[in-house]
Amino acid sequence: MSDTDKDDIALEQLFSAARSQSPAADDDFMARLMADAETGAAAAVTTLASQEAKPSRSGWLSKLTTAWLPASGLTAAMAIGIFVGASDTDLGVSSDFLLSDTDYLIEDFLPGSGFGEFDDTEISG
């Protein structure tokens, strides 16, 4: 056996002794850590609550946008549904405009509404 091997064995015996004699955590120290643990957990939930209660600017903007988009989609769908439904009645409204190249104005669908008055109006600044 070489000297290096012998040294390695000796060193391993020292490591082994160290592992078997790990420094013990005394009761006072553990009590201190346990008290910290209680306090730390209570503080953690407070931190979490304050993070949730204070949304960021991008957070409220995002919520506003996501709330608005479905609402506008729903409104558009309802409007189209009303026109399509009305086209089969004798209300004088046709849904052909959905399929043709013809330009339609609001006055065409709601005669007398007054929107036609704006058709040829030039907007001056």
Binding site: L33, A37, A44, L48
Partner: peptide, 25 residues
């Protein structure tokens, strides 16, 4: 622990503290 569970924190102390103390000592 992040949800405020003190007993979970104490369980972690029991697991981690002896190993950490051994290293630090």
């Amino acid at each position: 622990v992040g949800n405020g569970d003190g007993r979970a924190a104490q369980a972690l102390v029991g697991r981690l503290a002896p190993k950490l103390l051994s290293h630090a000592t």
